[in-house]
């Protein structure tokens, strides 16, 4: 049996509640409501080492602070990369940042994806919408060590062709022979010739050996729940499925209480969990 019990990788931070200033080096518009920030520390030469799946608390001066997962390449720790969608006051303020602006960073926090445990296995990444962002570091990691894994498959669902995240990168990766990418949208347009429908519909046909597969799933809760069910129907073991959860967070160190999901604190016990850790809670309302 594959053991995906998340490893705690948070390093000891001197004061975990104190943001460190980072300067924006580059802003990239990904779609009409998503963007990526590349940033470097202002006062140090700190290399931002992190495990794929971990998150930071990003602070906009005087506005507020929110948890955002890291979307960059773990092998390039000189640059911290975050991709997010404009949904509230802080992300809106963040979307207006320009090169040279400064924001606060606390982190990295939480558990990472089971990248090491997946060695020797086929890997299926299932992403919904902005859920692709926390999975991108996994792809970087796996492509850097491609020989360690069997088939690597990305199943990606989003609302419309306009919402496709990292489009150029996906097209580049799609041209590789060692990476299978399937995209589906909820509703297409006249130029769309791809799949239409929910991402779970891609699972039955996707090319992987279910009995030797590790799955990593990130998206809306209901999508993750049904993805896990669909993967199990294909024969993937529940223990071989990892999910990344999202909740309101104020501290990121398990003290503010906001991110509780059943007995877990998403910030420190997660955000990456194995499916059996969450299964009974995912099926309940308003947890």
């Amino acid at each position: 049996m594959i053991n995906l019990t998340p490893q705690l990788t948070t390093q000891q931070l001197t004061d975990p509640m104190q943001p460190e200033p980072f300067r924006v080096k580059r802003v990239m518009k990904e779609s009409y409501d998503t963007f990526t920030l590349e940033m470097e520390p202002v006062n140090s030469e700190r290399l931002f080492t992190f495990a794929p799946g971990q998150f930071n608390m990003l602070y906009i001066f005087g506005v507020g602070e929110i948890p955002i997962s890291i979307s960059g390449d773990p092998n390039q720790p000189a640059m911290l990369v975050h991709t997010t969608r404009i949904v509230g006051a802080v992300t809106k303020a963040m979307s207006k940042l320009k090169t040279g602006d400064v924001l606060g960073v606390r982190g990295p926090f939480g558990t990472g994806w089971p990248v090491s445990a997946a060695k020797g296995c086929d890997v299926v990444l299932v992403a919904g919408g902005i859920g692709l962002a926390p999975l991108r570091p996994v792809l970087y990691q796996m492509l850097a060590h491609r020989d360690r894994y069997g088939k690597v498959v990305l199943l990606y669902g989003c609302r419309s062709p306009e919402d496709i995240l990292f489009r150029k990168e996906l097209e580049k990766w799609r041209a590789r022979f060692d990476l299978e990418i399937f995209v589906t949208v909820d509703y297409g347009d006249s130029d769309w010739h791809g799949n239409v429908g929910v991402v779970t519909k891609l699972i039955p046909k996707a090319p992987f050996d279910a009995l030797n597969t590790v799955a990593m799933v990130c998206g809306p809760e209901v999508m993750m729940r049904f993805t896990a069910i669909e993967l199990q129907k294909r024969g993937v073991q529940g223990e071989a499925i990892a999910l990344s959860m999202e909740r309101n967070m104020k501290c990121a160190i398990g003290l503010c209480g906001h991110c509780q999901f059943g007995p877990t604190f998403i910030c420190k016990d997660g955000p990456v969990f194995t499916y059996p850790q969450l299964q009974s809670w995912l099926a309940q309302w308003e947890i």
């Binding site: 509640m17 602070y59 001066f61 005087g62 506005v63 507020g64 602070e65 104020k250 501290c251 003290l255 503010c256 209480g257 906001h258």
Partner: peptide, 26 residues
């Protein structure tokens, strides 16, 4: 009960900011 929230506030000039932690409730 130990839950808290934080409030990020700034002064009118936008030059000074602070973070206040307050008791919160589920």
């Amino acid at each position: 009960c130990f839950c808290t929230t934080v409030e990020d506030v700034s002064d009118l000039t936008g030059q000074q900011a602070e973070r206040i932690r307050k008791w919160d409730s589920c």
